[in-house]
Amino acid sequence: MFAFFLILAGGTQMFALDGVINWSTVSAQFIVLAVGVSLLMIAGEFDLSLGSMAGFSGMVFGLLVIHVGIPVWVAILLTFVVCALIGTINGVLVIRTGLPSFVVTLAFMFILRGATIWSAITFNKQPVVSGIGDAAAGDPIAWLFGGKAFTGLFTWLGQQGIIETYTRGTRAGQPIVDGIPMLILWAIGLVIVGQWVLTRTKFGNWIYAAGGDPQAARNVGVPVARVKVLMFIVAAICAALLGISQAIEFGSAASDRGIMKEFEAIICVVIGGALLTGGYGSVVGAALGAVIFGVVQQGLFFTNVESSLFRVFLGTILLGAVVANTYIRRSITGER
C-alpha cells in the first residue's frame, strides 16, 4: 500500500515531513477509534453508536465549557464519565436483553446524534459551539488532547536547517511542521497498551474467550458479561477521546462530527484481520488497517484522484479482507 502511493505520489508532498504528519494525523483519528472497536469486536460485540458518541462527547464538552462555564479540565473529565456511562448502558442493555448489539447500538446511534443536534440548537442556537480554543488555552490538561508535542525539538530542527521552515510571511523562520499532534501520541499509546492487554494478560485471554465462545468461557468461570460491558465502556471512552481532541483541536464542537466514523472504524478493524463474529483479531492489525485507511484517503488526495473513488476503493478492500478472514477462520477451526 505504501509502495503503491510512494510510486504514484513520490514527487508530491505526501512523503515530505508535512505530508507524513498530515496522513498520520488522519490515521491517528481512525486508530483511536479502531483500538476500542477492535477490542469490542474481539469480545464478540459491535457498537454502531461510536461515531455519534464522538460527536456527542464533543458537544457535551463544548456546552459544558462555553455555556456552563466550568473549567476545561473538569469538562474533559465529566465528558469521559458521561460517555463511559452511555457505554455501560449500551453494554448492559445488550447483555441483559440478549438482543444483538447491532440493534441496541443502532438505536443509540440515532439517540446520540439526535441529542447532539438538539442540545446544540437548544443551548447554543446554532449547530456549532465555538470558542473552545480560547477557553482551553492555559488549561492544565487541555494540551494533552489538542496540543502538539516536541515543539521545542521541531523548532530546533528548523533552526538547524534539518527540516523545512517558512521562508516568508509572519511565521518566517518557524518550522512548517511545528510538532507532533497529541492525537498521534495517544494513538500510539493506545495501540501499545491495547495490544499488550489483549495478548499478554489474563484479561486479554478473557476478551478472546468471551468472543470466541461465550458459553464455553462461562463454563470455566470467565465473567463474560463483565468483560463485554467493560469493552463497551472502553470503546465509548475511545470515542470520547476522539470527540474531545477534535473539539480542542478545531476550537469548536460541531453536531455533525463523527458521522460514519463507526463504520470506518469497523472497516479498519476488519482490514486488520479481525473476524466479524468475534474471538479473533488484534489491536496492531486494527491500527495497520487504520493507517491503510488514512494513507489511502490522503494518498488519493495527493495523487489528484477523484476523491469519491476513495469509497469505491475502500469497499473493495473491505470485501477482500472479509473474504480472506473467513478463509483464515475456516483453516483454523477446520469448519467447512
Binding site: 474467550a209 465462545d213 468461557a217 470455566v220 470467565v222 473476524l275 479473533y280 483454523i332 477451526t333 477446520g334
Partner: peptide, 19 residues
C-alpha cells in the same frame, strides 16, 4: 461441545479462567 474455544490456542484454552 462447549468445552473448548476453537480459535484460541491449546495453551490459552487449557488455562482459561485460571491463568
Amino acid at each position: 461441545d462447549l468445552a473448548m474455544i476453537p480459535l484460541m490456542s491449546v495453551s490459552r484454552n487449557f488455562w482459561l479462567g485460571r491463568e
